[in-house]
């Protein structure tokens, strides 16, 4: 997961930017773009944003772990590392020369490869960039890449795919929309009961105050029917419940299908695929869905080594 374009600028940030500020700035950019009705440019900025010497706060990490229902252990949850790096990635999206509007972008998937467990007291260096701007049947998608290193050694890397709905930045899609096979819910193994205030509580522990997640009115401003759960909350909980006590490398992927409304209930299936070779590490497949409407919210897998 590296991009060697030759002429890539490295932008050193003083500190991890505050997401609230980025969202405010993005809101203004969106408004300005609407007013100017400018056609979106078709090139991603050839930059990497980097923040060094990032430390996590113990009380904050404890709150994050407890909100997931996981144990307050001295290792950082894999999804928390994403949370630490996320504002740096967002600062790339919030650049005036970034071709897509940050607000209202839909989070499609995450794939993470973690080389080893990271302790709460380790000092992190975060670098983020965007790549692979490409058409999607519903608009334009882009990959947000983040890497976290400790003492110059990469410990965590993630690819988040985002969709800017209705925006044609790079021409029409090559293929017509693929017909999704009908969703057949698996045998449920669990149930998440998500409270109405979950979005605000997760925002408080993750710093991600995206209006989509905070309240009905703020979500409706961005075209949603109501508040929806943070994708990373669902992913973090999925990873933690699939592998509660990882000790080595960890890989996981989540694909988001439909948003999870708040308050809401998510039916869950955690299953180890049969026939999996044990030596390759244990893998857990996860599906989260709406039991009433019989439609998937997300699918994913977690593999511990």
């Amino acid at each position: 997961m590296s991009q060697e374009n030759g002429a890539t600028d490295l932008v050193q940030l003083e500190a991890v930017p505050a997401l609230a500020g980025l969202y405010r700035r993005a809101l203004l950019t969106t408004a300005a773009r609407r007013v100017a009705r400018k056609g979106a440019p078709s090139d991603l900025p050839a930059v990497r944003h980097r923040v060094g010497g990032v430390r996590v706060e113990l009380p904050a990490i404890t709150c994050f772990q407890h909100l997931l229902g996981s144990a307050a252990r001295d290792q950082l949850p894999s999804a928390y590392l994403h949370t630490v790096a996320f504002p740096v990635a967002m600062s790339v999206l919030a650049r005036p020369d970034f071709p897509l509007p940050l607000l209202g972008m839909v989070h499609l998937s995450n794939e993470v490869r973690q080389e080893r467990q990271v302790g709460v007291s380790e000092t992190l260096d975060v670098v983020a960039w965007s790549e692979a701007l490409r058409p999607h049947p519903a608009g334009t998608q882009v990959d947000l890449m983040t890497e976290i290193a400790v003492d110059g050694e990469r410990v965590w890397s993630g690819r988040s795919v985002y969709l800017a709905r209705g925006i044609r930045a790079v021409g029409a899609p090559e293929r017509s929309p693929v017909e999704r096979p009908a969703f057949v819910p698996p045998v449920p193994t669990g149930l998440w009961r998500l409270d109405a205030d979950l979005g605000r509580r997760y925002a408080a522990v993750s710093g991600d105050w995206n209006p989509l997640h905070l309240s009905g009115p703020s979500a409706r401003l961005l075209g949603m029917k109501g508040a929806i759960a943070h994708g990373m909350y669902l992913a973090a909980r999925m990873v933690d419940e699939a592998v509660p006590a990882p000790s080595g490398a960890l890989s996981w992927r989540v694909d988001f299908a439909t948003p999870v409304p708040l308050p809401g209930r998510v039916a869950l299936s955690f299953a180890s695929p049969t026939g999996e070779v044990a030596a390759a590490g244990s893998r857990v497949d996860v599906v989260g869905w709406d039991a009433k409407r019989r439609r998937p919210h997300f699918t994913g897998w977690v593999r511990a080594e």
Binding site: P59, T62, C63, Q65, H66, A71, A72, R73, D74, A245, S247
Partner: peptide, 22 residues
Amino acid sequence: YSSNRDMLIAALDGLVARFGLQ
């Protein structure tokens, strides 16, 4: 802010690591 469960898990996981009980 650590619960009984948190601390018991921390003690258990330290034991697991020390004696290879994964």
